[in-house]
Every structure is written in C-alpha cells, then in structure tokens.
C-alpha cells in the first residue's frame, strides 16, 4: 500500500554551503593562507586592478589567482602573463556564482605554498554576495562609470565586504560620480568597510590599497 507523507525540513538553501565555507576558512587559517574574494560587475576593471595590485604585493607574498568565469580562460591567461604568478581558471558551467566547493577545488588545483590567493568571482553583484566562498576577506570593486548609487541598488554585496575599491578614479572628471555620496551610501549599509578610490591605469592611490592589504594580511 502506498502512503503519502510530509517530511519537515525547515532548512535554509544556503546552509550546506555556509557550513562548507566555514570549514574551508578554518583550514585556510591553519595553513596561513589568506583568500580574498573579489566581487564586482562585469567590466569594472577587476583583472586590470588585480594585475596592478599583484605587481606591488608580489615581492612580499607568494600569490596565486583563481579566475572564475562562465566560460573562457582569457583572465587567467592575462593575469599569469602580466604578473608571472600562479593562476587557474574556474568555469562555473553557466552558474552566476562560485560556491565553497568550487573554491576549494580551485585551491587544490592551485597547489600549496601560497600566502595570498585572490579569487576573481564571476562579474555580478547579486549572486556572489549570497554564496559564501570561504574567503578570509571579501572586497567589492565599484568602477566610476557604474555610478555612485550602486551600494543602494545592490546592498548585500556592499554589506558583506570588508573593503570597497572605487576603480577607474582617473575617469572621475568625466562622470557624475559623487565620491562623498558613494561613501555615505556604503556607510548606510556597512559601517565597517573601508572605501579606497584608485586608478590602476595612472597608479593613483594604489599605494593606499597596497597598504590596506599589508595591514589586513598582518591581522589574519
């Protein structure tokens, strides 16, 4: 005889991933690896900024990079060519974000003996904010042409980040981007996040960004 029964679960969809992310974070801490999850919209200049930042940090730390995209390996190739550091490309297979499992797989591929690993997440301000990758540090890049009101439109990613990098600051004279407003909007979501405007192209303020990372790495 067949029976129809209801099984109560009351389980958050993100619960398994959150647990896996916490476990990964703990393992990274034991190994002394700092994993930086870099989130942003497509075209914000993530790869260009990472290349400029890695060149500055490469003398102090052993750095690896994981590039996540839906397809292609152009970013991994670019970063490896421009910085000489170890890089792997992760394909999300159509998905709009990385989860802790995919991140861990990428770390294995990258190998041991690193102090600092950058994870360039899929260009998207919605989904990556919802899935904890297990990163030690989360940062979001907001480029000047995108507008100063992004923290209002995509609150979660700004709420979950330790640092907001305002990229393409050399373009400030050409856009109606109000830096004060931007900082205010970030503050309304996240009182603790640092906001650093930089230009990877001209090198403007890159030293401040470098110093932020040096300080952060000494803490974690």
């Amino acid at each position: 005889m067949q029976q129809v029964k209801t099984i109560l679960l009351s389980k958050s969809v993100f619960e398994d991933n959150d647990r896996a992310a916490d476990e990964l974070r703990a393992r990274l801490r034991e190994k002394g690896v700092c994993l930086v999850n870099v989130m942003s919209s497509p075209g914000s200049g993530k790869t260009t900024l990472l290349v400029a930042l890695i060149r500055r940090l490469a003398q102090k730390y052993r750095i690896g990079v994981m590039e996540a995209d839906i397809d292609s390996d152009v970013d991994a190739v670019t970063v490896a060519r421009e910085t000489g550091c170890r890089s792997v490309q992760l394909h999300t297979g159509g998905m709009c974000h990385l989860d802790a499992g995919m991140t861990e797989q990428g770390l294995r591929e990258l190998g041991d003996g690193l102090d600092l690993v950058f994870l360039e997440n899929v260009g998207n301000l919605v989904c990556p904010a919802e899935y904890d990758t297990g990163a030690t540090v989360n940062i979001v890049i907001l480029s000047v042409p995108e507008g100063d009101d992004k923290p209002l439109k995509y609150p979660l990613v700004f709420q979950n980040s330790d640092l907001v990098v305002v990229s393409k600051a050399d373009a400030l004279p050409y856009f109606d981007f109000d830096m004060e407003k931007c900082v205010k909007y970030v503050r309304s979501r996240n009182g603790a996040a640092a906001v650093i405007p930089v230009s990877a192209k001209t090198g403007e303020n890159m030293e401040a960004l470098e110093n932020w990372f040096i300080k952060k790495l000494s803490e974690v």
């Binding site: 005889m1 067949q2 029976q3 129809v4 029964k5 209801t6 099984i7 109560l8 679960l9 009351s10 389980k11 958050s12 969809v13 993100f14």
Partner: peptide, 14 residues
C-alpha cells in the same frame, strides 16, 4: 531574506 526548504510531501511504498 530567507530561502528555506520547509517540507516535502512524497509517496512511500510498502
């Protein structure tokens, strides 16, 4: 902001 699987109803055989 929750996304929760509350319950599932299923058919079970003998």
């Amino acid at each position: 902001d929750q996304v929760v699987i509350k319950d599932i109803t299923a058919v079970f055989g003998e």
